[in-house]
Each structure stands twice: as structure tokens, then as C-alpha cells.
């Protein structure tokens, strides 16, 4: 082998060693994680939403304990409000009254009082803290009461109830 070729080989080896020495790295990296608001609401209807009144219920009202079950998952403190979709019931039937107000319906978080009479304005049904459904207060039931009395004619009445979950 020629002497010039030996020099080239030697330079290549030195270059390789030097190159490997430059791969060591020291530094600081900052990681950024964006967490969005999470709100999840589930409603289970435990009783039939179609209610037929019997005679005594016209006098005392129709009460259903644990009418609905709610579960909330949230990473923020939350508020659950309730309102009526319309001011009055939608009525059908020859003798039905078109002026039966949503306020004949009362609802309350089970174990609490008084009943909230429904209006089209939201009213606070429950509040809670961040957490999943096993967090205290994030799973609860609702009692229901309807008390039209003798003030409205026989017929079929329909009303939408709106439950709204918001972050505090």
C-alpha cells in the first residue's frame, strides 16, 4: 500500500472518532399539554314519562320518587339547571285546557326541598365538583311531582323539560 493511501485511512479513522464524540447532547425540553373542558351528563328515566292520573291524585298531586337518575363527569365544578321548554303544556283533546302552565310540575333533587316549580327560566337543580361519576354528588336522583288539581280539563298534555349542565 502506498504511503498516501495510509494517510487517508488514518484521517478517516480520526474523523470517525471525532464525529462520534460530538453526538452527546445536554439540554432542556418543555412539554405542553392542553386539557380541554370535559362535561358529560347522563339522564336515566326510572319511571314512565307518561302519567295517568287516578282519582285521588287530582286532590293530592302525583308524586314519583327517583323519577330520574343523573350522572355527571366533569373536570370543572358544574351546575345543573332545569327549565321548561315552553311556558304552557301542549294540550290535545276536546275538553283539554290550553293554559295549563309548566309550573304544575315540580322537581327536586332527592332528599332536598322544596320542589322547584318549572318555568322557562333555568333554575338550579344541583351543583357539584370536578370528578367522575363516583365523586360524591356527581350521581344523584330527582323526585317529580305533578299537581294540576281540578283546574284543567280532561285531555292529553305534553311538556318538554330541559336539563342544562354548565361549568361554573
Amino acid at each position: 500500500m502506498k504511503r498516501s493511501n495510509l494517510y487517508i485511512l488514518l484521517l478517516l479513522c480520526l474523523g470517525s472518532i471525532k464525529g462520534r464524540g460530538q453526538y452527546s447532547f445536554n439540554g432542556t425540553m418543555s412539554a405542553s399539554v392542553s386539557i380541554q373542558s370535559v362535561l358529560a351528563l347522563s339522564v336515566t328515566n326510572n319511571a314512565s314519562p307518561a302519567i295517568t292520573f287516578t282519582n285521588s291524585q287530582y286532590t293530592n298531586g302525583y308524586t314519583v320518587s327517583n323519577f330520574n337518575s343523573f350522572t355527571v363527569k366533569s373536570n370543572q365544578p358544574w351546575t345543573l339547571s332545569v327549565s321548561a321548554g315552553t311556558a304552557n303544556f301542549s294540550a290535545s283533546g276536546t275538553y283539554a285546557s290550553s293554559n295549563m302552565p309548566a309550573s304544575v310540575i315540580g322537581i327536586v333533587k332527592s332528599g332536598q326541598s322544596p320542589y322547584l316549580q318549572l318555568t322557562t327560566t333555568g333554575q338550579v337543580l344541583a351543583t357539584g365538583n370536578r370528578g367522575n361519576t363516583s365523586t360524591t354528588g356527581n350521581s344523584f336522583n330527582m323526585d317529580f311531582k305533578a299537581n294540576p288539581g281540578y283546574n284543567y280539563g280532561p285531555g292529553i298534555y305534553t311538556l318538554s323539560i330541559v336539563y342544562t349542565l354548565t361549568a361554573q
Binding site: 373542558s37 339522564v43 292520573f53 330520574n68 280532561p154 298534555y157
Partner: peptide, 26 residues
């Protein structure tokens, strides 16, 4: 978009329809 998503309070709505049958009584 990120700003807008965080500026808005998240809201979830659920609607339930109830029906009452009132009978002739008396």
C-alpha cells in the same frame, strides 16, 4: 380556535318529554 374553545363555557343539554293524561273526574 384554541382561545375560542377555552373562552366558551361548555354546555350540555338534555331534553325530556313528559305526558300527562288527565281524565274526566267527579
Amino acid at each position: 380556535g384554541q382561545f375560542f374553545a377555552n373562552a366558551q363555557k361548555p354546555v350540555k343539554n338534555i331534553q325530556q318529554t313528559i305526558t300527562m293524561n288527565l281524565l274526566a273526574v267527579g
